[in-house]
Design a protein around this nucleic acid. Sequence first.
DNA 1: TTGCAAAGCGGACCCCGGGTCCGTATCGTT
DNA 2: AACGATACGGACCCGGGGTCCGCTTTGCAA
Lengths: 198, 198
Amino acid sequence: MTTERKPRKDAARNREAVLAAADALFAREGSPDDVTMADVAAAAGVGKATLFRAFGDRPGLLRALYEARLAPVREAIESGPPPLGPATPPRERVPALLDAVLCFKLDNRRLAVALEESGTNSPYQAAHYQRWHGLLRGVLEQVPGLPDGDFAAHALLAAVRADLVEHLAGRERMPRERMRERLAEFTARVLGTAPGTG
Amino acid sequence: MTTERKPRKDAARNREAVLAAADALFAREGSPDDVTMADVAAAAGVGKATLFRAFGDRPGLLRALYEARLAPVREAIESGPPPLGPATPPRERVPALLDAVLCFKLDNRRLAVALEESGTNSPYQAAHYQRWHGLLRGVLEQVPGLPDGDFAAHALLAAVRADLVEHLAGRERMPRERMRERLAEFTARVLGTAPGTG
DNA sequence: TTGCAAAGCGGACCCCGGGTCCGTATCGTT
DNA sequence: AACGATACGGACCCGGGGTCCGCTTTGCAA
């Protein structure tokens, strides 16, 4: 087993400072890649090496920020009450999950875009995507009449990809509630629960 | 009006050489961004400046390659016979369009990925995306019972995004015909023409 | 054919951002 | 207080996109 030593307290403090600074910068700046690593280091009042030692590389920093923000949502999904929690019947849980993802991306647009475009490789290898996909796929496969949960999960998640959300909400100024509504309609159609279909 | 002068013939020749070289390199290399502009210039037997003069910047080169490959498909869509051409009834044309996009991306995976990730800004501002979306949206809105063609068009196109296609076809080795089938099923569900729904 | 702009060429060069090195400062333990 | 381990920081390196400018080629015209 890999014995995890606990970090020195200045290290921990710096780590927090960096996270806070990065958070603020991404919120403030227009485009994610206008924020350079040197910027973050400077804003945190820290040397570049400290930053890289703490997070490995740029994607590492983004991931850390992302996971921190995502934690409450994960919690709600893994052990919360319906309609997000595991006790929810599949037909209701699927739209709830997608809505949660959408809302999360709406609330963290810049960050989500930065993360998706940061890796040198596709977002589909990212651990958090694999988790979302695995979960959604599992729930979809409990819905009778859905022939292929795997592809459907990918396709539904594609509809809430960060850059699409950013495009619609940011560039096209589509209101939040409208987007949620459209996504719900779309999901319902895929599930075969659409009003017009019956 | 902007008077377009015709280029000198060595310029034209070089332009072709660059396109051919880039094409070959993207096909050969594993990852799109392993191919540098300098590589392309060298492979084409041309100076870097020539390359940049001809195409502006890296995205410009990618776009040129992409448009060239895309031309026959556009042709088939704009003035070809059914099921792609304009004479096709909407309910058949939507899946045909998506299938065409999917096949195109399968045949030009590397290039499509490179293009989507190349721009400093999202792929949703790219002219070719706007065209696909506008077209699909228009067709969708001719289908009765579809409340929102705009979002549905985005969502359906998201299901055939280059990196997803690359992930499924490349990394996960999903066979071509299987992908087409899954996409067709998914599309049918959205359109309300799925076998399980009726 | 030769003259001569203008258009084009090429590769050395610049810029800038991610990532590293290593001498110095801090921590925390004895 | 002292000393090893751990962390700090900013100068530094590297590699890739994009530009500059002195030289070559083209094509028109005399």
